[in-house]
Simulated assay, not measured.
Amino acid sequence: MKKWTVIFSLVFFLLGSQQTFAQQDYEKYGRIATAVVKEDYTGEKLADYKYNGRKSLAEGQVQDTFTFDVVKDGKDVTVKVNIIHNPKKPADLTISVNEL
């Protein structure tokens, strides 16, 4: 019985570690997206921010998508930020910012 308890504990620990890593990864790219929007919309108010998720692409790359609500000249503007990167090469980023 102890053997199964140890195995289940190890599995839950590893699953928890994966979730923590994914959250840290999401937070890292969220900070990058926020910095880019603040730079592009200097002096404007960032009203809201949402992580839309991750999509797998070809050649080991992934795309994280974020949506920002920005108050630009008194009007609400939605800004979408896509960050394409390879988790094995974290320094290689492609960032696109689109006003919707």
Rank of each mutant, 00 (worst) to 15 (best):
K2M: 14
K2H: 14
K2V: 15
K3F: 11
W4G: 09
W4K: 11
T5S: 15
T5E: 15
V6N: 13
I7P: 03
S9K: 07
L10V: 15
V11P: 02
F12N: 03
F13R: 09
F13W: 08
L14D: 00
G16L: 00
S17F: 02
Q18I: 10
Q19W: 15
Q19R: 12
Q19N: 12
T20W: 04
T20K: 02
A22D: 10
A22S: 11
A22H: 13
A22M: 09
A22W: 14
Q24S: 12
Q24G: 04
Q24F: 07
Q24W: 10
Q24H: 13
Y26T: 09
E27P: 05
K28G: 04
K28D: 08
Y29D: 01
Y29F: 08
G30Q: 08
R31F: 07
R31N: 13
I32M: 02
A33P: 04
A33G: 02
T34C: 05
T34G: 03
A35G: 06
V36H: 02
K38Q: 06
E39Q: 14
E39S: 12
E39A: 12
Y41M: 03
Y41W: 13
T42G: 11
T42N: 09
T42K: 13
G43C: 04
G43M: 01
G43H: 05
E44H: 07
E44V: 03
E44A: 06
E44W: 04
K45V: 05
A47I: 07
D48W: 05
D48L: 03
D48I: 02
D48A: 10
Y49E: 07
Y49L: 05
Y49S: 06
Y49D: 00
K50V: 03
Y51A: 01
Y51E: 06
G53Y: 02
G53C: 00
R54W: 01
K55T: 14
S56I: 10
L57C: 06
L57F: 03
A58G: 12
E59T: 11
G60C: 01
Q61T: 11
Q61M: 13
Q63R: 08
Q63M: 07
D64N: 10
T65N: 06
T67C: 01
D69W: 01
D69A: 11
V70G: 02
V70K: 02
V71P: 08
V71Q: 13
V71E: 14
K72Q: 07
K72F: 12
K72N: 10
G74L: 06
K75W: 07
D76I: 11
V77N: 11
T78G: 14
T78N: 15
V79Y: 01
V79Q: 01
K80G: 03
K80C: 04
N82P: 09
N82Y: 14
I83L: 09
I84W: 10
H85D: 02
P87Y: 05
K88H: 09
K88S: 14
K89I: 15
P90E: 15
A91P: 08
D92H: 09
D92W: 03
D92K: 05
D92S: 10
L93S: 04
L93K: 06
L93R: 03
T94A: 07
I95R: 04
I95S: 04
I95N: 04
I95Q: 03
S96G: 05
V97A: 00
V97G: 00
E99Q: 08
L100R: 12
L100K: 11
